[in-house]
Structures are given as structure tokens and as C-alpha cells.
Design a protein around this nucleic acid. Structure first.
Lengths: 136, 136
DNA sequence: CGGGACATACGAAGATTTTCGTTGACAAAC
DNA sequence: GTTTGTCAACGAAAATCTTCGTATGTCCCG
């Protein structure tokens, strides 16, 4: 049978593991970065080659893209931050919160109280969702 | 040196792994259950002894308690659901959302649109947090 | 040219998590 | 009392995730 090798998109990118999320977080914060820059930003006690290997694996998995034009390759998150965060949140929602966004919000706010400003922003978000939901 | 064995609380219970979360979810839903009951509720293709072993490990870790009075032991989540969910949400918040509850809420709502009723409930939550936060 | 500093690649060890096979205990049914 | 079914308890394999050691290449400087 056909090997399906030539399709446009490799595969739906898998959920990142914990170490991979830590790396993505750095890339989200700093934008395109070298392994060295990511490793330095990671306040970890593991060695440089560990970070390198992880990022190579992430590249193979399609979690990041890289520009090899320079001596030190430049890595970047492949999917926009929001999309990956949505995927992660959705996965957790399903597995640990019975699909109840309410529970997740409650848990998040209880874990880390938000500022009044944040709360206001969240209200704005709710308004938008309400509107979107009521459409039609 | 002293082994610290006799202190009141064994240890802060560790964050549950993925498979453990799945089991906790069942216990949250069904209350005290036998391994058999949990295993049946888990729509998994793994064997019974896998579930058994996991629950035994969870017992050793202090994630669940059990009543051995019956032939089939009865397992229950040790910590209240809300506490564990808060722990999980807080961990994720820190690792993947830059500590921004706003981002997590956005991700959750985007992943699984909430009903108008849910949104209203969330607003109520926000009000409570606002009050609590403004104190002093 | 010959280091030294720093980069990628990659195999494989280590750790952790998940799965399973086997054993022995117990009880109800035959 | 023997068979049958279900259970807990392990030990250890299997799978996954993380870490590291080492080889090798390149650039820059002296």
C-alpha cells in the first residue's frame, strides 16, 4: 500500500512532554533561539547535550522548525503558542477535569490568584465567548 | 541520622502521572471502588493486573487510601478532588502558561467552548475571587 | 599549521512510567 | 474435597522520557 510519505503535513504534532514544554516556553518567550540560548535560559542542572538532544527530537517530531543557515542552528516553535496551549489545556481538561472548563478555571485561579487586571481581562474573554456562542 | 519516619504526614503527595490521573478521575466520579470497578470504567485495552499494579503504587505513594476489610479492597482518593485539581492546574500554569491564568482560561475555553450557563458560573467565580483579592 | 572553544550528531545508559505473567490465597459451586 | 473463578502481590519486561559520553566538524586566533 501507499506509504503516505508525500502528503503535505507530516502528522498532527504530538503533545509535548514536560521537558519539551519547558523548551517551548523558552522559545515562546525569546523567539528563535539557538540551543545555547535555550539551554542558558533553562535554569536546569542537566548538561548542554541533553538540551541539544531534546531539541533534535522535537525537530524530528515536528514540534519545532530550525534554520540551519548559521553555524548554530536557530530553532523556533512550529505551531503558534496559542494553538499548542489550547491543545495542552484541552487535553488536561478532558483527562482531569471531566471536560468542565469551570473546574479548570477554578483550579487555576485557586492555584494562583489573579490580579484584578487579569480578572478583568478574563471577563472580557468571557464576553467574547458568550457572543460567539450565541451567534445564530 | 534520623530517618524522619515517624512524622505525622508521610510526604506531600506527588503529582499524579497520566495513568494515575485517569484512575483518580474514576474514583472522583464513582467514589470508593474496587480495582475491578475502576478497571471496567477505564475504557482501556490494558489488562486488569496493570490497573491493579497502578493502584497499588498509588497506595504506596499516598495518592489513594484503601479499606482492606473486604476481599476486594476498596480504594478512594486520598485528597479531595479540588485540591488535586488545583495542584495539577497550578503546575501546568507555571510550566506552560507563564503563570498567566488568563492564558490558561483562554486555552481551556478555546479548546472546549463552554455553555452560557458555564460562562455564568465562571463569572460568579471571578466575582468571588475579586472580592477575596481586594481584601485589605 | 595547531590548538581551543563551541557546534551538531548520535548511540546508549538511566530513570520513570506502564504493562504483563505468574503465584498463592480464598471462597463459592460442583 | 476438588474444581473454578476472582483477587492481591510481586517481579520483571516493555515502553517512554531524559540524560550523558564521545566522535566529529568548523571557526577563529596565535
Amino acid at each position: 500500500m501507499a506509504s503516505r510519505s508525500l502528503s503535505k503535513e507530516p502528522v498532527p504534532p504530538p503533545l509535548p512532554t514536560d521537558a519539551e514544554i519547558a523548551i517551548l516556553a523558552v522559545l515562546w518567550r525569546q523567539g528563535a533561539s539557538t540551543v545555547r540560548e535555550v539551554h542558558d535560559a533553562l535554569a536546569k542542572d542537566s548538561g548542554y547535550t541533553t538540551t541539544l538532544k531534546l531539541m533534535q527530537l522535537m525537530f524530528e517530531k515536528g514540534l519545532v522548525v530550525r534554520n540551519e543557515r548559521y553555524r548554530s542552528h536557530l530553532y523556533e516553535a512550529r505551531a503558534p503558542k496559542e494553538q499548542t496551549q489550547r491543545q495542552i489545556a484541552g487535553d488536561l481538561l478532558k483527562r482531569a477535569f471531566e471536560g468542565s472548563a469551570r473546574s479548570l478555571v477554578l483550579g487555576a485561579l485557586a492555584a494562583q490568584p489573579a490580579s484584578g487586571k487579569d480578572l478583568a481581562e478574563i471577563r472580557t474573554l468571557l464576553d467574547e465567548f458568550e457572543k460567539r456562542g450565541e451567534k445564530k
